[in-house]
Nucleic acid binder design. Structure first.
Lengths: 190, 190
DNA sequence: GTCTATAGGCAGATAGAC
DNA sequence: GTCTATCTGCCTATAGAC
């Protein structure tokens, strides 16, 4: 897939707009203006807005899979893997954006089922991966934590998603750094 | 304010719709259908959609203030106060809804400044109250926690907001119970 | 306070030329 | 693949009768 293909540009533009304004607040007109074509041309690539949304979330899930694989390869310790994961969110925070899933979750009831499914998949995959790393860390003695890894994973992911919301409401700052610190205190405290 | 006044009914309907579908996905037509009047009549109570949004968030902040005051009066220990606060969120979770602020945060860039301000106020007020309770709990020896109360407060609120999103994406369940458990483990572990 | 009627604009989407 | 032209429907909002 060439990165300059129109379809890719459209997905990029849509992702930014959704993360900034929400699914129901962006239009083909916005996309057309950004990419530099007419609205009718967008329908050639994505017949309906739902099609675009589904394609976007599919790409988002694939990107996640790639990012997690990259972290697993590059990094050694479970703790630094978790930190790399959190970094994905701090980068989003710095952009003043929120997660695509978090944004779509608000509009959930207006979304097609296939899109709802992709959102759930993204979050589940993240959660499982986190739980895995926590479990590994405990096993190898890197992390001292007595609770269920799955519980800590769900809590961490929640606080990252919610942290992006709070951070944006505050108008900036680095709330996620705090979230990370508190998270590791939890893991090491037990 | 009589609870059956049309304005109140409109706010109630709008709040439900926003929590279910997002700010940009509900219309005066939806409200009209719910309340049983015509769209034009809504403009008598709330000239513009922004006016409605602002009034709604103002009421939401007032409700919060009332709820926090009620908790402070009724309950004794800091820990049970915090549990009562979390219960506000578990009730939202049970309804399959997310926080009004969380929902509006996605559409933030499309909202009038006064509305953005109200969102920030709601979250700030929550955060401060939580931090206060944690500080009290530590002072009275109820909670063992060495970090900054403000940090734990920001993290808890983040995980509650995010937890509502994850919970909805999962299609139900009681994720917030898990979040609560992990939170108190953190506070008592240190 | 609520109604009917209507305005003006934008939404997503389609047909067919190039 | 992108265009122009056009459709239909919904949106917020207003005017004015009751």
């Amino acid at each position: 897939m060439k990165t300059n293909e129109t379809a890719t540009q459209l997905l990029d533009a849509a992702q930014s707009l959704i993360q900034e304004r929400g699914y129901n607040a962006f239009s083909y007109k916005d996309l057309a203006a950004t990419v530099g074509i007419r609205t009718a041309s967008i329908h050639y690539h994505f017949p309906s807005k739902s099609d675009l949304g589904v394609a976007l979330m599919e790409r988002y899930v694939q990107d996640l899979t790639g990012a997690l694989a990259a972290i697993d390869q590059k990094t050694r310790s479970s703790k630094s893997k978790l930190k790399s994961f959190i970094k994905l969110y701090t980068e989003t925070e710095r952009r003043g954006a929120i997660c695509l899933c978090g944004s779509l979750a608000s509009d959930r009831e207006t979304l097609p089922p296939s899109l709802q499914k992709a959102i759930a998949q993204y979050l589940q995959q993240s959660e499982r991966w986190i739980a895995e790393k926590i479990q590994e860390g405990v096993k190898h003695g890197e992390l001292g934590f007595r609770g269920k890894p799955a519980d800590a994973a769900a809590t961490l992911l929640s606080s990252l998603q919610g942290g992006l919301i709070l951070s944006r409401a505050r108008g900036g700052g680095s709330l996620l750094t705090t979230v990370q610190r508190v998270f590791f205190e939890t893991l090491e405290a037990a």
